[in-house]
Design a protein around this nucleic acid. Structure first.
Lengths: 352, 352
DNA sequence: AAATAGATTGAAACGGGTTTCACATAATAG
DNA sequence: CTATTATGTGAAACCCGTTTCAATCTATTT
């Protein structure tokens, strides 16, 4: 029934008042006589009228919207990050617009242009930044946002030259923890599995791994595979173990994430190796399925939910309170979740 | 540097032309002298100016935005659905706004009001509809969208009274397939695990299960647990098997989804039962981890990606081509993915 | 040289709200 | 009973683009 596009003027004329009065009724707190308010309200109800938030925002210079840029939520890590961040933003009354990065495309000027055009109150950039093979300037595309004074918070390894609020997990230290854990359990030949040299979080982990191995005077068996999926894990293990004689084989694997660990475990079993007796394995992210692998997977919890929440809080502060243009980097500690895939005391400290 | 809020008028005055000319430069195809175009363009570049898409949309009566309403993407099924749908929408140049439902809250008038206020070009409602314990009208909140002639497409079991384009998986038939598969493998005592009577897709599966069991003259061992998580699966199995003597125990379990199956498998192993010898198990959704469980999980593929894509295509057609106000329901077939958790021929027809 | 067509450009209206300011009426004070 | 204040309401400006229409200036035709 109700007409195609209905405006405040339609309501006004039907109620025999001016648009100003309808606006007052909508805002609630102005002085309008009870009789008028009643009449206008009923007409609004009747037509299910809701004032356009854009016309509104146009005048008020704020649309209460924020943009999230993130990789696919098919990766449960980002799903958790997104869910928490989204929830916080919604609680604060913001609508969220979602933009995506892919493993091969980073945030380019085109997307940034769109973000600016949307007149967002803030932008949250979640990981997935690719170490550019393009001119390095491309990594700094988000800089334009800063120039336009659009609040920006990032959750990823800090990008040099991009001075904004940044939260990130200490990826390097998380790998170090893993190495030390395995070392303490008596492992000397440890392999690192997964990642891509183009990916900043991947290379950061890798660097941490190599450094910690060196510190402990451990010999490295090392495989470098461009991928973050279970398939990459399968292939990685196959390639890793094929050319190595049984005696020189690594006794433990650190996978770049739980997905890769999952694939690796399958391939290990397929090759007749038992976990953790023949091969210990450790993942990263503490994804929901970790307690349910066989054996349950030891991993590192990066607390993505927490990260998402604090990031949005900072973004809100910047968007609303006009906080001084501050920029800082905060590192979130990660915690090793010991389960059974490394042969550590079974059943102890098991979480979730 | 660049001023806080910069408008087309700022650009115009800096270039010494009128706003109309700047607008013409932006749109590209109008006749503007090369000299002027050049000058204006350089000033636009300098300030990273992008015209507000809202001021633009206000005039053009279309914002090229669509709203997605969905449950948490922490459920990989919805993550897949969302990712595919999002990609299609983005390809067509639309920005997507995300709203969430929770297991306990359905889409209420407040959210619908917001959607209307955002003047969206279309709305996609993805599952998660709760069979209301509230007045049944609440299920029909999206009806308001239809009244306002806002294109609506749903992906969930069809809601009576909500005449819109609807796509859904034939949940009932997918369970029937599972039952027949198990029956063909010689199982007679089959349990159904998981779901909540408040959830429409859950109850639909349950009904299908009961009906097919009756048709095959099978005795049912049945447990009804309000949940869709691995934890629910663990608890479900524990409760299911505890009170039953070994002889009367079911020999197979159909889990409402792969998550529940995952939990169930863990609990079965914990109780010393081996899969599939002591207990066959079958999941639903064909989530990424299914090939990696031990043994690999037989499940049903609902093709969420496909569902998401066709739904968005329809939505686009309605939003753009002013297609007649049509409404229909289309059922997508699901396919059984046979792996090893039911003891069927190992290695055959294995997918992914 | 005058007339006409064509290319550039600006003024102004519009879209849908909010808000300021002024005005009319009603209520209160003196 | 007039002077003052409070209350309810409308006209109009504003937010930031797009688009129509008319005006100017240049170039071509006769």
């Amino acid at each position: 029934m109700a007409g195609e596009k209905i405006t405040i003027y339609d309501i006004a004329s039907e109620a025999g008042v001016s648009a100003a009065t309808v606006s007052r009724v909508l805002s609630g707190y102005q002085n309008v006589s009870p009789a008028t308010r009643e009449r206008v309200t009923s007409i609004i109800e009747k037509h299910h009228f809701r004032p356009s938030s854009f016309a509104k925002g146009l005048f008020q210079q704020a649309f209460r919207m924020m943009g999230f840029i993130l990789p696919s939520v098919e990766n449960p890590y980002y799903a958790a990050l997104f869910t928490a961040a989204h929830e916080e933003a919604r609680k604060a009354g913001y609508t969220v617009l979602v933009y995506r990065t892919t493993p091969t495309e980073h945030v380019d000027e085109a997307v940034i242009g769109q973000l600016i055009a949307q007149r967002l109150d803030g932008v949250l950039l979640l990981g997935g930044i690719v170490e550019s093979t393009q001119p390095p300037g491309d990594l700094l595309a988000p800089l334009t946002l800063l120039q336009r004074h659009i609040p920006l918070v990032t959750i990823c390894p800090p990008i040099p030259g991009l001075d904004c609020i940044n939260f990130h997990s200490d990826l390097s230290s998380s790998v170090r923890q893993s190495v030390r854990h395995l070392h303490a359990l008596g492992h000397h030949r440890i392999a690192f599995l997964g990642g891509s040299y183009q990916n900043r979080s991947a290379s950061e982990r890798e660097l941490g791994f190599l450094d910690e191995m060196r510190k402990l005077n451990l010999s490295t068996v090392y495989y470098h595979e461009a991928g973050h999926t279970p398939e990459a894990g399968e292939l990685g293990v196959a390639r890793l173990l094929a050319p190595i004689s049984k005696e020189n084989q690594p006794t433990a694997i650190i996978a770049i994430n739980d997905l890769v660990a999952l694939g690796a475990m399958r391939q290990l079993k397929r090759m007749g190796l038992s976990i953790p007796q023949d091969m210990a394995i450790i993942g990263c992210d503490n994804q929901f399925f970790c307690p349910y692998t066989d054996p349950p997977l030891t991993t590192v919890d990066l607390r993505p939910g927490e990260l998402g929440r604090v990031a949005v809080h900072q973004l809100l502060a910047k968007a609303e309170k006009r906080v001084e243009d501050l920029s800082f980097t905060q590192i979130k500690e990660s915690t090793l979740i010991v389960r059974e895939s490394c042969g550590a005391k079974i059943g102890r400290r098991e979480i979730k």
